[in-house]
Amino acid sequence: MDEQTAKQLRVIREVTGLMRAHDIPAWLFGGWGLDARIGRITRAHGDVEFWVERVHAERSKALLVEAGAEALPTQPPEESCEFTLGGVAFSTAYFDRHPDGSFSQPLGRFADWLFPPGSFGDEPVPLDGTPVLAMSVRGMLAMKEQFPQLRHGRPWRPKDIADMAVLRELAAE
């Protein structure tokens, strides 16, 4: 494990511990979310990404800043907040729950992004010995598959294509 991966794991532990202590669920997604679902670290990651329900957005941001994270003014505040902590970049993106069990990010650039029921479950999975919440396989696959068609989406990168193949295999299990 390289130094950056070790630092990112420390941030994941700090953020998940802090959020858990304050009853704010935070789900990993992106590369770290996929690694959590696979059960092992598969590659180096550029950042750490968490989903937080919008009702907890301001409180989670305040708790993270109080714990030493620096909130960066780089994202529309209705969508997400980027932070640094100990030289590690991470973010919290915000979603809303709907009565039919689905989820979305209805404010901001990605208002057309929809996540299926079950995308944000309550069962933690182990990541390097730490229990973490991670977006479901179905949810991450829906995220990846929709991205190029979103109003503000972009084409899949090679790692997105590879991740979708892994997610499809996991979904078939």
Rank of each mutant, 00 (worst) to 15 (best):
L114K: 06
D112R: 05
G86V: 05
L85A: 07
W113A: 14
W113L: 13
Q75T: 04
L85W: 15
F90A: 05
P117K: 05
L114R: 10
G101T: 12
G121A: 03
A93C: 07
G86Y: 03
P126D: 15
T84P: 07
D96S: 09
C81G: 06
D122G: 01
P116I: 11
R109N: 08
D96Q: 03
P106R: 05
A111K: 04
F120Q: 01
D100L: 11
V88W: 01
R97Q: 08
P116R: 03
S102N: 14
E79C: 10
C81D: 11
E82L: 09
E78H: 06
G108M: 06
L85C: 06
G101D: 14
T84Q: 14
P126K: 05
F115L: 15
T92F: 11
P106Q: 11
L114T: 00
P124C: 15
E78V: 05
F83L: 03
P76V: 08
A89G: 08
P124R: 14
S104M: 09
P77N: 09
W113H: 14
G86H: 11
D100Q: 13
H98C: 14
D96H: 00
D96G: 00
P77L: 13
Y94K: 05
P76W: 14
C81P: 00
V88R: 02
S80Y: 15
F115D: 14
V125R: 10
G101S: 13
G121K: 02
V88N: 00
P124A: 15
C81L: 14
P116Y: 12
G87V: 00
P117W: 06
A89C: 01
F110M: 09
S91G: 12
D122Y: 05
F83K: 04
R109M: 06
E123I: 03
G121N: 08
T84S: 13
V88P: 01
Y94A: 14
E123P: 00
F95A: 02
G108Y: 06
P124V: 14
Q105N: 07
A111Y: 06
E82R: 03
P99N: 03
A89Q: 04
A93P: 01
E82I: 02
F110D: 04
A111L: 08
S119V: 12
S102M: 15
P106C: 10
D122L: 11
F115N: 14
S119W: 09
H98N: 13
T84N: 11
P117E: 09
G118V: 04
Y94S: 12
